[in-house]
Design a protein around this nucleic acid. Structure first.
Length: 198
DNA sequence: GAGTGGATAATCT
DNA sequence: GATTATCCACTCA
């Protein structure tokens, strides 16, 4: 399977978000290969997006990686307990990113179950199965990603994205959620998901 | 099946 | 020192 090259990320964030659907996110850790299919992604348009950390050109140590080169991971912590995985887009100096909100486990499912609940996949409760990887925080926990991966190169060998199976699916564009504070920006159709996976 | 409240820590001013 | 936003378990119908 072919990795996505840096040029893929060096484009408009909305375009990248839509094309990331169906792609495979791979995290290699301790010889274990964890792979998930991306089923939901959200674009953050930097300075013109009130929902983005970099809105208005704000520049703090945390968002610094978004100002860097495309194709890098931007991890940020929310609620003090969960983190979100983002892909940095656009060229250096333009702070845009795509948030990966949900995915579907493909490889290393047992490993993920141990990581999240400390027990085999078969023993998970219904609610645990339902929420296995359908949220940003849960996704990161399952993939064993945290702030130590912030700024990592997605064109490297530890965390990268592969082209999917090329199967057919229908992409739905919708409003973003959980950003009521963003005023008019919350009405933009910058959130994408694969129909039938939610 | 639907709705509610409590937990938590890095980041910013 | 204030702010920030998701997940989970619990309750009720």
């Amino acid at each position: 399977m072919k990795k996505l090259d840096r040029e893929f990320y060096n484009r408009d964030s909305v375009l990248v978000a839509r094309e990331l659907l169906g792609k495979v996110l791979v995290h290699e850790i301790e010889g274990q290969r964890l792979a998930v299919k991306i089923i939901e992604a959200e674009a953050y348009m930097g300075v013109e997006d009130k929902a983005a950390h970099s809105y208005g050109g704000k520049r703090t140590p945390r968002v610094e990686v978004m100002y860097g080169d495309p194709g890098h991971a931007y991890m940020f912590l929310i609620y003090g307990m969960y983190c979100c995985f983002n892909v940095v887009t656009r060229e250096k100096g333009i702070p845009q990113a795509v948030l990966i909100r949900a995915a579907e486990p493909l490889e290393g499912i047992q490993w993920m179950a141990q990581q999240r609940y400390g027990k085999p996949y078969e023993e998970l409760s219904k609610s645990q199965l339902k929420g296995f990887t359908n949220g940003p925080g849960k996704l990161c926990k399952a993939l064993s990603m945290d702030r130590s991966h912030n700024g990592i190169d997605l064109c490297g060998d530890q965390i990268y994205l592969e082209k999917g199976t090329g199967e057919n699916f229908h992409v739905i564009a919708t409003k973003r959620v959980g950003i009521d504070y963003a005023e008019e920006a919350k009405d933009y159709l910058w959130r994408f998901y694969i129909e039938g996976c939610l």
